[in-house]
Design a protein around this nucleic acid. Structure first.
Lengths: 136, 136
DNA sequence: TTTTTGTGTAATCTTTTCTGACATCCGTTG
DNA sequence: CAACGGATGTCAGAAAAGATTACACAAAAA
């Protein structure tokens, strides 16, 4: 839930993602062009990637290295996200996510995590629990 | 231990940090100039901030809002990091950290976390445990 | 063989960031 | 009060990073 927020927060520019994934900018943009990822953008149209995006790119890379082509990767990634019986909860959370702007995401993370973290150095237990799923 | 790696990985440009902290670039640079943070730099000398840096900035901000000046903040932050009896282990880990270049940090994170994550979607238990301390 | 794919590369433009300087607002202090 | 220093705003010019587009090309597919 707020897990999605963290994982979907647009944080890194393409240069960092290149280092994290060992992919070239060309590759990353090509994969985006083919719908494998959909990074957010700054006002000035620069790409901003989330942890989810980076994970996705690493999956893509692994599949590329196994010889799959883009179409195959799309298949595999869809299989990994089988979109099972969508419950009301899931649907509503999806809808809610789409309503959130980047700025709102930042605001949320700020307030929910960083801020409470900074102000109350002793109240970390709960925060830790939430953050344990920062990635996956 | 590899916690330090994650928390110290230089990931975000100043624009993102501004949004996360609600500080201006001017403030962030000023705090750096006064030794409150020490963000990494790209080859082109642009700042790259880690989660540790962001946390630190949020602490600084909270103290600023309480009316402290830079000198006071230095005091408080030192008190929060009292540098207690330095054990051999701590010292050696400090030394080891200083030997790591930014690139090596990225390499490490890549291999230890993202990569294993991407390749083995079922082996997450351990990773989760490690990541639970990503921030705090 | 011809076509398509995935990636490299170069050119050009825009966005973001950097540094340095000067201005300003505000507590402190003489 | 007047001068001063601390913290921040703002601006200018330069540099870095990123965006888009176009062309090239090897390898795979048709």
């Amino acid at each position: 839930m707020s897990d999605d927020l963290r994982r979907n927060m647009a944080l890194f520019p393409i240069g960092i993602v290149m280092k994290l994934t060992d992919l070239t900018a060309r590759q990353i943009r090509y994969y985006e062009q083919n719908g494998l990822i959909q990074p957010a953008r700054t006002e000035g149209k620069q790409r901003l990637f989330s942890f989810n995006d980076v994970d996705r790119l690493l999956e893509v890379k692994a599949l590329i290295e196994k010889g799959l082509n883009i179409a195959g990767i799309k298949q595999v990634l869809q299989l990994q996200d089988p979109v099972p019986e969508q419950t009301e909860i899931t649907v509503s959370s999806e809808a809610k996510r789409k309503e959130l702007t980047e700025q709102e995401l930042h605001q949320l993370l700020k307030q929910q995590i960083f801020f409470s973290n900074a102000n109350r150095p002793s109240e970390h237990a709960l925060i830790r629990g939430e953050l344990s799923r920062f990635f996956h």
